[in-house]
Structures are given as structure tokens and as C-alpha cells.
Simulated assay, not measured.
Amino acid sequence: MLRKFSNTRSVFFGRAGLIFFMAFLCSSYSGKQTVLIHSHNDYQKNIPFYRAYSQQVHTIEADIYAAPASDGLLVAHDPHELDSALSLDEMYLEPLIFLFGQNEGRPWRGSEQVLTLMIDLKTPLHPTIDRLIAKLKRHPEVFDPSVNPYAVRIVISGSRPDPEAFGEYPRFISFDGFIDVDYTPQQLERVAFISEPFFRYSKWKGGADTLSAEDRQVIESLVAKSHKTGKPIRFWGSPDTVNAWETFRELGIDIINTDRPEACTLYFQEH
């Protein structure tokens, strides 16, 4: 039996409480970030969405499953979590719609920064992406950059169509790319960034030791290859320490993957 909540307010104590809560969370944020930060598996945080949002991160990640016999999309990491999972609407779409209304059509009032929501499809492409597109189409002022230049950028990961089929999907969604795929120029237009598993290329844990010269050369070559296509790169499954963050910045990795959005943001503010 799936646990249901009547609406987002039942989870976050009402809109008035939300405004107060967001003011509190954002009170320590100052200035623009010089590094792009990705809130990895954001939905697993004790306060999903709002912790990362309050830090003005570049990307927030949610994994979704198509609920059986409905148009619902549930947010969870593994199937065994679905019985207690909340919906994508409750956790991400409804808060974003509300905040865009409060912030004059922007994710953060008065900010030029654009927010990216990366959605990892854990169930087969169809019907998962069809349900998602139907939900996004209801609010083009929030999710369609052709309607609002400050709209949330939606990036699809997980179950993705073949690159040859990218053009069959609305242009308000783009796709997470692979480093070893030879995309055509038209396909590259639909790729938001490149994501690769760090552990495929290095066993470094981000401790006090340094990344080996051999591993550094490998990572630098991947960064250069991604940049040659004009796309930023992110490594997931990567060390999540201060030493790792600084090393990744030095290597030219564009998007820092972290499970610690506050600490990561604070580090780059101070350095």
C-alpha cells in the first residue's frame, strides 16, 4: 500500500512555514558560486530539495519509478522503498511551481542563475518519460526555457532513449551524456552534460594522499574530451571530501558531485 500525502503542505507545514524555513536556510548564503555543485541523490537527504535549493546548487538529482496502474511517479533509490515513497510532484515539482510564483518566474528572486533538475528514470523509458513530460507540460512557465528563460532545466538520466531518437522528445528536456558515445552535432544539442563513474577510472578515495599521476592523466584526458564537444563533465561515484573537491576543481571538472551540498558550497565560498 503506497503511503499518500494530500499535498505538499502536509509534508512541509504550509506555505507560510515554507517561506520562513527558506529564509532561515538561505540566511548564510552569500554571493555566486564559482563551482557548479550537483546534489547527488538529493531525495535521500533528511530535508530533500530545500537543503540543496537553499545553497543555490547547480543541479538537484531525483530518481523516479513509474507507479503501477496510475500516472504517478515515485521518488526512491531502490524498489523496496516504494511503499513509503513520496511522489515527484510532492517532493520537487510542486515546491518549484510554488517558488517560481513567489520569485517572479525565477528559481531564486533577482538571480540570473538557472536550476537544473536531473531526473534518473529507474523504470523503463515508457511509460516513465511519458508521464514526466505530461506533468512538465502543465507548467511551461516553470519547466520550458522557450517560454521562460529562467525555467528549470530538466535533464534525463537512467533509462534514456537512443541518441537517434532525441529529436522525438520535447526540447524542454535534455539528456545526460556518455563520454564514449559519438554524438552527432544535432544530438549534442540535446545533451546537457557528460556523466561518468569515477570508480571506473580510479580507486582513489579522496584521503590525505594525492591522486596518482597516472589516474590524474586519465581524468584530465576525459575532461579534455568532454570539453572538446563543448559539454561540461561530472563524475559520480566519486570521493566526497575536501581534498577530492579541490582536486576535481584543479582538474577542470565542471560539476562537483556531492552528498554534502552545504559543506561543499561553504568550502568553495571560502576558497
Rank of each mutant, 00 (worst) to 15 (best):
P161N: 04
L266T: 14
T247F: 06
K122R: 14
K228I: 04
V191L: 07
Y92P: 06
W108D: 06
T123Y: 01
R249W: 10
I154N: 04
D254Y: 04
S195N: 13
K231E: 13
V152G: 08
Q33D: 14
P124H: 11
A76G: 12
D144C: 09
V147L: 04
V147Y: 08
E189P: 00
V114D: 05
L188M: 13
Q187W: 11
Q186S: 14
S226Y: 02
A62L: 07
F143N: 02
S70H: 08
P79S: 11
I60E: 03
T265S: 15
E112K: 10
D83G: 12
N41E: 12
I47V: 15
H271V: 15
E81M: 01
S70P: 08
D63V: 02
L36G: 03
V75R: 03
E90G: 04
N103M: 11
V147S: 05
K122I: 11
E90Y: 02
S146G: 03
F172Q: 03
L88W: 05
G72R: 10
F49C: 03
V242C: 08
K203D: 15
V147T: 13
I219E: 03
A69L: 09
H58Q: 10
V152K: 01
A165N: 14
D120V: 06
T34F: 08
S87I: 00
P149A: 10
N243G: 12
P124G: 10
L121T: 00
L125M: 13
F248T: 08
L266I: 14
I97N: 07
L125R: 03
K137G: 00
I156F: 06
T59I: 09
N257P: 06
I97W: 06
E90K: 03
D144E: 08
H80V: 08
L211I: 12
L125C: 09
D83K: 14
S221R: 14
D182P: 00
S70M: 09
T34W: 00
Q44M: 13
A66R: 00
F49R: 02
M22R: 13
P127V: 05
K4Y: 09
I256S: 01
Y150M: 12
M22L: 15
E220I: 02
E196K: 09
L25D: 00
R138Q: 15
V114E: 05
L82T: 04
L86E: 08
D130H: 04
R234I: 00
S221M: 11
P163Q: 02
R109G: 07
A192H: 12
L251V: 01
A192C: 10
Y183G: 02
S10W: 10
S111Q: 13
T123M: 11
E262G: 02
E61R: 07
Y53F: 15
H227P: 07
